[in-house]
Amino acid sequence: MQQRQARDVRLDLFKGVALLIIFINHVGGNPLAKVTPGRFGPSDSAEIFVFISGYAIALAYGPVLAERGFAACQRKALGRCRQLWAANIATMLVSALVVALAVYVGDLPMEASNRLESFAPLFDSPVVAMAWHLVLIYLPFALDILALYILLVAAAPLFLWSYARFGMAAVAGSVALYLLAQGAPGLMPPNLWEGSWNFSPLAWQCVFFLGTSLALVVRSGKVTLPRSRWLLAAALAVVVGMALWKGAASDLGRALVPAGLHGWLPEQTIPWADKDTLGPMRLLHFLALACAAALLVPRDAAWLRSAPARLLTACGRHSLPVFCVGVVLSIAGTAVLMAGKGASAVLAVNLGGIALLLVLALVLERRRTRRLPAKATAGPASPSSSSTAAAVPETS
């Protein structure tokens, strides 16, 4: 029987950090978004979220496939999809309520922010918009990544089965779909707002299933990431090089460099780095960033047990509610910054929003830990199950 792999707290920690960055970036007109990591390279927190979610899927569903078969694994995945679908609907409705308060009570112009304007179809034709939302064809601002995740979770059992049967050929199939997305970028699901999704499922499935594949390889124990200085140097060279490239091509970079040296600066920012189709340079940057993080942060690092790290880890462990509440708070924060752009408003939105998300994660984590002793004393575990401490509950 396959044993469930012990949870790697680094995954939850990095996912928690990504969720806080996503909140900051989703607040319209937020000055703090200009100094988040996504401004220093082509990839951003979306890749972290999707990659780690794919890794977690392998740990949660891989043993189910091995012990109970494909049908049981698919049922579990579809059950999770129903939860995600319900969360998507609830998040959209609560966000719409916030937009209604901002526009009809706060008298803010809806067209002044694409965050607010993305809810216009819902107010113009509620029945039509809601019907399209139920089938993931109307997705207001920030909700397309959740729709993407629904599709990826639904497809995960097929990938796990293919990997178990054909090995790396399954990964090759995923890469082939990614290349198809690069060659035909128009193959995108439609969206009632903005015409199409912001994330191509054909492209973004690659980073998701790369995470899944890595988890399966690590679980097998056959391959480990070499702790090589040369590998770390290469990863950091890619990350730093792209940061310098992006900075040199920016208006700020040109302003800081003497006019006589402008001919040496790149005229355009990093090519082949589109977010919707996960351009190759964007994917390369993320893979280098992930490699550097894995090498620089050992799994047994002492600081991972510190109070701040545990708080961020709780954020990543309960990523679905944290993400959904973060979307609502980002819409509310956008309205606040539209009403008043002073430093106090910026601080209130960012510090208040982050504090609320961390408190939510802390409350959920305490509820989870209180339930663990009850589960441990409820009766003996089945032979096919691992210990409670080593189990990997499904996340995100």
Rank of each mutant, 00 (worst) to 15 (best):
L358T: 03
K246Q: 15
V240Q: 12
V327A: 06
G379E: 00
P380M: 11
P121I: 12
A339I: 02
S213C: 10
G333R: 01
R165D: 10
R165V: 02
I331L: 03
F199Q: 04
W303Y: 12
L256K: 02
G29W: 00
L284I: 09
M92C: 14
V17N: 00
W193I: 01
G16W: 13
N191A: 13
T224N: 11
N114P: 15
L261Q: 07
G211P: 12
A46R: 05
A294P: 01
L295S: 12
F51V: 01
P373K: 10
G62E: 00
R80P: 00
C291M: 15
F23R: 10
R305L: 10
A112E: 08
S385V: 03
T395G: 11
P121R: 05
W85G: 05
I150G: 04
T377V: 13
T388S: 03
P383T: 02
F23N: 04
G221N: 03
A72C: 08
S330D: 02
S387R: 02
D124M: 02
C81G: 08
P280H: 01
V50Y: 03
L265D: 01
G69W: 02
S384W: 14
A249M: 09
A376F: 01
A378H: 07
L97M: 15
L146K: 00
V328D: 02
S387M: 01
V64M: 00
L177P: 08
A332R: 00
W303L: 15
A235Y: 02
N191Q: 04
L216C: 03
H133L: 12
S43D: 15
P31M: 13
N198V: 00
W197L: 05
I137G: 08
L180D: 04
L152G: 07
I354H: 07
G41W: 08
S95I: 03
A335R: 07
R227S: 12
A273M: 07
E394V: 03
R80A: 06
L295P: 13
G16Q: 07
I52C: 09
P185N: 11
A361R: 12
T212G: 03
F14Y: 12
L283D: 09
A389T: 12
A100Y: 13
I331Y: 10
D44P: 06
G41M: 09
A112H: 13
F123Q: 13
S330H: 11
G186P: 06
G241N: 05
L252N: 04
A255I: 06
A343V: 14
H262Q: 12
G263P: 01
Q205W: 06
L136A: 05
V257A: 11
C81T: 06
E394M: 14
L278M: 15
K246A: 09
A391L: 10
F70S: 04
V50N: 10
D12Q: 00
